[in-house]
Design a protein around this nucleic acid. Sequence first.
RNA 1: CGGGGCGUAGCUCAGCUUGGUUUAGAGCGCUGCGUUCGGGACGCAGAGGUCGAAGGUUCAAAUCCUUUCGCCCCGACCA
Length: 578
Amino acid sequence: MRYSKLLIPTVKEVPAEAEIASHQLMIRAGLIRKLASGTYTYLPLGWRSLLKIIAIIRQEMDAAGAQEVALPILQPMELWSATGRDVVFREILCHFKDRHGRENVLAPTAEEVITDLVAHHVSSYKQLPINLYQINYKFRDEYRPQYGVIRSREFLMKDAYSFDATAEGLDESYRKMYQAYCRIFARCGLKYVVVQADSGGMGGTDTEEFMAPCEVGDTLVMSDDGSYAANLDKAEVDPPARLELDGVGGIGPMKEVHTPNVGTIEAVCSFLKTKPAEMIKTLVYAADGQTVLALVRGDHEVNPAKLSRAAGGAELALASPEVITRLTGAAVGFAGPQGLAEKVQKLVIDHSVAAMPAGISGANKTDYHMLNVVPGRDFPLAGPNVTVADIRNAVPGDTWGGKKLVFSHGVEIGHVFKLGTKYSQQLGATFLDEKGQSRPCIMGCYGIGVNRILAMAIESGHDANGCILPPSIAPFEILVVPINVGSGAVMDTAVRLHDELAAAGVDVLLDDRDERPGVKFKDADLIGFPLRITVGERGLKEGKVELKRRTDEKPALVPLEAAVAEARRLLADMWPKA
RNA sequence: CGGGGCGUAGCUCAGCUUGGUUUAGAGCGCUGCGUUCGGGACGCAGAGGUCGAAGGUUCAAAUCCUUUCGCCCCGACCA
């Protein structure tokens, strides 16, 4: 392949719209261009990389026994109403009416479609297990597209769906996918960690995320010995030791204080000269007609996913000011737990609040707070509608299982779920077992963000000069650079090297442009060809050419006749192993 | 959807506050010629713009006003 024939619009200047390295470099190296917010065109080099990633995914999925299909991108809304996920996805769901007035959805994922397919064509345990996957475009009307292809509205996803007859079968299908994912990311040269996650809108039980380290990603919590990793929605923290009530004998009765116009934790603290950790934050949540009261310490934050689990799995949203005022009798910012336990369907108290000897809360009276609020004395810690649970975000300093928790950030590149029978029951994907009994398929689903693999590979693989990609996913494995295309000897040698490498099955590009060497070298580094072979008159006089890995400081001189073999050896050495 | 910012050459931006010598500019990129040629060369000549769009104010609008569209950031939200 000749460089001069390819559309490779590299740019020197850093694009104004791009905040992070991978986004900037994907534009600068001529891999992508933005068409509109959250939608990107892949140029020849970017698409070549994606195709290589796709090939790796396909090989590993097939090797794991999954079968490739292609599902429609256009889906009827009826399937989404059937599972109620039209509501779960809300505005994220991209939909429109066609000319006949039918409502259509641009696929954000395909559980409904695949389950519908299996419902129609799988009827016996003899057909199970089965794992179907596709690599296809998905659409999500993100609230805020960001960081280039990391959060785009249109993206390439590999999504697989397993159907099993038994729970043990699902465990096995899940394990196979998990292992395939490890091989896929390893072959792409990616660093990643696997974290426990919350299944959220997907439903189901066990779920783990594959995260690539990246400072703009989601918060990632790990124990300092690496034995535990979870995202914020899942990360558990050790509860503090519970104080005995007799230890609070010295604490007086509750006392109301006038705190005019100080409704926030910070304002109250500076007004009362105290610390957030001394405060009890009382939050009112609404969940389909129910009211849930959540208590966390003033220096902590409620985690909605944890709260939802503690409250019995309901979809929760912060209550409106009207609901809060009706419940507490006070303006927003002055709620307190005392006297409210009977008025709400659920009172959920974080462990750290339950362990406070006493705290300051709102007085359920506008412009007043309450001192000396003692958990267990002034509001219940037990009862039919009272739960003490872990409902807050983990913070630095917390431990789990006695181990210190450390915090970092990562971008989700893959996700494996045990779904169970949620979709199969709703969409009638049942089979007859050995006894002739009808049972719903037990499902799992497994996603990979294909574009994110490329972005994350660049995010963790780059330097000041450009991308550093492994040969498994670089657009080309080798770039042959003739220093002077006007020199017959140089050009002939470069062409011969290119042809020999190509004949040997190496993905090689010849930079045949009539450019100054500096321009070619800069482009080579920017794009990140893993290996560069430079042919110049200087070396040729001694019968030598230069080999330089992208990461090498200086090139190595190699005899011309040994160049192809040496290049292949270096390449094999750089190839990431699964 | 709330708050903020920005739309001027292919890209990055100046000019706008205070309307009028600006016939709309610079750098990079692009075309031609010449000189160069091992880490983004230099000279000369050139192409390229309905100043995001529409309406308004004015003798006069890139510049002021209104509306609208697009893009970015913060927040809310998110497999």
